[in-house]
Design a protein around this nucleic acid. Structure first.
Lengths: 198, 198
DNA sequence: ACCGTAAACTTAACACTGTAAACTAAAACC
DNA sequence: GGTTTTAGTTTACAGTGTTAAGTTTACGGT
């Protein structure tokens, strides 16, 4: 019956290939179809629309990132070290998978239907991981400081750093490695909750 | 001779109107032209292409932001207070001018020709303002810590916070005001350069 | 006053994009 | 073997940025 051997998987493969090698703008229905060897409309047999196709790739990326974050917990026993490693891993993921990062975190809301709330689970789970480790590293002192807020601050920092780096908006005088370690250090300052309010 | 009264300005006006009211995706050559009452191709008489038109709006936005940052210096005498106010102003600019912010800082590099290096002046100048105030607030102690790097860290935080907020990716349990003041506080922690390296 | 030229603007067209509807071929079922 | 369902294609539409050619209008010179 089937003219193709698992067409859905082939579409996903070529879409991923196109994303990683040529960037998001080159992920078009026609280009994906051409690489697969089918017609553009055939994609609609397996994906409701382009957004659904991209969302599948987003989920893949979320899985990869989630895996990398989880590995940080196993690699260290000290929770402060775990936290730093997690920050480093997040940055490294963005730096080495720029196109994945773009679709996962930088796609304009207007340009695409928002990533369905239900599927934010992995993203939220990552944030919760940061919050948990942060909470643990500080040893339950000062329970008034909500770790979720601090984790959100850290996420903001990491996301901003990655975005600016990928957009090549970091001053050329700052070497990549310095930028990376400094960002981790700044994030790690959240481990010592000595804040003065404004 | 002229069929229109300062067509270039009218184009810019309607493009700005469309951007602010309807968002970046709705800034199309045909929609701008329709609002102006001219043909789409007439725009090309005054702007090389769509990018050039958008860049004009970007420059406008940069000017507005630059102005707001400058006002912070006048509003306070203490340089630490100036710094905090600058951070707050940056966030507020993004929060209240989401569409300007999008074209200024979030347009995918691939989707648009990179913002010409020469025109980064205002953006760089903003970064330098942050670096200068940071340097001054710390009173020249520890000259080894390059304020440019720290200013870049702060910029990363502010940009990340704004981006996540505008994309509505901040946990609903965190009120906007708390998020705002916490971000400013975190940025302000750069004023006390007590960093432990990793 | 008239002609030629240059400036301002429009018309028509091209190569793309995502997507819906209609059509076709092949397999599955009874 | 005939009918229905599945898998896939063909065609078409409305939208995008942009280019090239055509048109109208105003200006300058003799």
């Amino acid at each position: 019956m089937a003219k193709y051997d698992n067409l859905r998987e082939q579409i996903l493969d070529q879409a991923r290939h196109l994303l990683v090698e040529k960037g998001y703008i080159n992920v078009t229905m026609r280009k994906v179809a051409h690489l697969v060897g089918c017609t553009p409309t055939s994609i609609y047999l397996y994906f409701e629309n382009k957004d659904a196709l991209i969302h599948s790739l987003i989920e893949e990326g979320m899985d990869i990132l989630h895996q990398k974050i989880k590995e940080c917990l196993a690699a260290e026993s000290d929770s402060a070290a775990q936290f730093k490693r997690m920050c480093h891993s997040f940055l490294e993921f963005g730096f080495t998978n720029p196109e994945y990062y773009v679709v996962m975190f930088q796609l304009p809301t207007d340009e695409m239907v928002p990533y369905p709330a239900e599927k934010y689970r992995r993203a939220r789970s990552n944030l919760q991981q940061f919050a948990d480790v942060l909470h643990q590293a500080r040893g339950e002192k000062q329970p008034t400081i909500d770790p979720l807020v601090d984790a959100t601050m850290v996420w903001s920092l990491l996301h901003g750093a990655t975005s600016l780096y990928l957009a090549q908006r970091i001053d050329a005088r700052i070497p990549k490695e310095l930028f990376l370690t400094r960002t981790v250090d700044y994030a790690a300052s959240m481990l010592n909750p000595i804040h003065q309010s404004s």
